[in-house]
């Protein structure tokens, strides 16, 4: 890739930052050229973000309908899945799975709620609500 071929397409996921790419400059040497982004990369980043957003939106709908707990919604909103939430909170995966049931979640001890809230960086109040 030559320096003048380094994409400058303004990838929105970079939030206005530029990333360093390596390309062949006019002097014939390969070196750093800042890039404002490439559409192909934006597409694959947004694909991952949209997939997590979709899971969160779907969990939100089910939580409001009462078929899952608020925990599932917050889990996806924090860009986690069951495995990761289990690792981060230190709560066994089978227990996390149980806590996705609305009735079980409603009866959770404050100490457990606090661990989930801490793992996802939100308050216990937020955790109980589906906003």
């Amino acid at each position: 890739m030559d320096a003048n071929e380094v994409p400058q397409e303004g990838n929105a996921t970079l939030g206005g930052h530029r990333k360093a790419m390596y390309a062949r400059g006019a002097d014939g040497r390969i070196g750093i050229v800042p890039s404002s982004g490439w559409e192909a990369e934006e597409i694959v980043t947004l694909q991952a973000v949209e997939d997590l957003d979709r899971l969160a939106a779907d969990a939100r709908k089910r939580a409001l309908a009462g078929s899952t707990s608020a925990l599932e919604y917050h889990m996806y909103k924090a860009r986690m899945d069951l495995t990761l939430l289990s690792q981060v909170s230190g709560i066994w995966a089978w227990r996390v799975r149980r806590h996705l049931r609305p009735d079980t979640f409603a009866r959770l001890r404050p100490a457990l709620l606090a661990r989930y809230a801490e793992a996802m960086g939100i308050s216990v109040d937020q955790l109980k609500r589906v906003d």
């Binding site: 890739m1 380094v6 990333k19 360093a20 790419m21 390596y22 390309a23 750093i32 490439w38 192909a40 990369e41 597409i43 694959v44 980043t45 694909q47 991952a48």
Partner: peptide
């Protein structure tokens, strides 16, 4: 998409 993210997004210089 994951293959491409690992190739480009994770600061590889392209």
């Amino acid at each position: 998409g994951h293959l491409v993210r690992m190739q480009e997004e994770i600061g590889t210089g392209g």
